[in-house]
Amino acid sequence: MSEKPLRIAVILGSDREGRFGPVVARWFTERVREHTGGEPDLIDLKEAGLPTSLPAYGTRPQGEVAAAVAAVRERLRAADAFVVVTPEYNHSYPASVKNVIDWYNAEWHAKPVAFVSYGGLSGGLRAVEHLRPVFSEVHATTVRDTVSFHNAWGAFDGDGQPLDPEGPRLAAKLMIDRLLWWGHALQEARAKAPYAA
């Protein structure tokens, strides 16, 4: 297995006003730093500037839109593995997450995707289950283990730390371990033979 460090991109999926996602994403990126010693690339979809719809088939985005699309493309291309931090909206994931998947294709190929979800009673797990077949369609491999926060707004203190830290920390460690395994295996496979979708 390759010893080359993995580049992990953490995608913050919520773009709503008053969102809770940054609290969860900050907590998780700290777990990645703690567990891997690396610096994840946090891609905040609210700040990314991606347009909300794809251009007509065969046309290309222009101007600021093109620059935003290209900037995110380079960050996704550079990543060896992804973690999507997603809320659950109406039993599924937010449009901003579908948008970032649809704008790109080859950037996801033969790379692992893991999930950190949050929400009410379900903890965002229905959003995760809806995302798995979508990522499969862009030739990504999803990691089985997840981190989820049920009734998330009451699960963190004022400093952005879980009130019951041990369970989430263990879940994050296991999920990161699985992501690293898949990330290294697929990194090595891509180095041996380019992936053809």
Rank of each mutant, 00 (worst) to 15 (best):
A66N: 10
V143F: 01
Y89I: 08
H184R: 12
V147E: 00
V84F: 15
V69S: 09
D145P: 04
A68N: 15
A78F: 09
D80P: 01
T59M: 01
Y89H: 15
Y89N: 10
N99H: 01
A70E: 15
T142K: 09
A114W: 03
S148P: 01
G124N: 07
L121F: 13
V134A: 11
D145H: 05
W103D: 08
R60N: 04
V116I: 13
H91I: 03
W182L: 11
A79P: 04
F115D: 09
G124I: 08
D102N: 15
L179D: 06
M175G: 02
Q187S: 14
H184M: 10
Y93S: 00
Q187K: 13
G58V: 02
S148Q: 08
I176G: 03
D145V: 00
E137C: 02
K173T: 07
V83N: 02
A79H: 02
L163W: 00
V143P: 00
P94C: 09
A78C: 03
V83C: 02
V138L: 07
A95K: 00
E129K: 09
L163K: 14
Y57Q: 07
T146V: 12
H139S: 10
G124T: 11
R75D: 10
V65L: 13
V69L: 01
R144F: 03
N90H: 09
A79L: 03
L186T: 06
A68W: 10
L179V: 03
P87E: 13
M175F: 04
G120N: 10
V143M: 10
L163P: 11
V113M: 11
F149R: 09
L76Y: 08
